[in-house]
Amino acid sequence: MNSIISMIFLFIGVLFIVLGCIGLVRLPDVYNRLQAATKCVTLGICGMLIAVMVEKGFSPMSGKALLCMIFILITSPTSAHAMARGAYRSKVRLCKNSVCDYYEFGRPEEAEKQPLECECKNDKS
């Protein structure tokens, strides 16, 4: 029974890792790629570690898997955040079909003063 549940979690984890990497290839922009890759790969690794914890029960391996899961959940979004800020500072702008960009004004006070003429449009790709 344990091995079947563990196999299901492992399947979900690997599926989401593959989906994240497909997103890394297909999406048009650095920021969108970062979103897809970070979310899906983090949940995929967490699913695989949960599979280890389910299969091994109360043992040294499940302790290490728990510690690894906590580290992944803390470090992966922080790394993504730093990478997004670095990409913006190195003057990579958003892709063509973006809607609005408040960050280009720099400080929040100036962003509130600027008139924003961009409107939400429903375009496809």
């Binding site: 497909i22 048009p28 897809a36 958003l94 892709c95 973006s98 809607v99 960009d101 790709s125």
Partner: peptide
């Protein structure tokens, strides 16, 4: 969003 053929995204900051 990734598996949809048209990529239904509408991004912004």
């Amino acid at each position: 969003r990734v598996m949809h053929p048209d990529l239904p995204i509408n991004p912004g900051i």
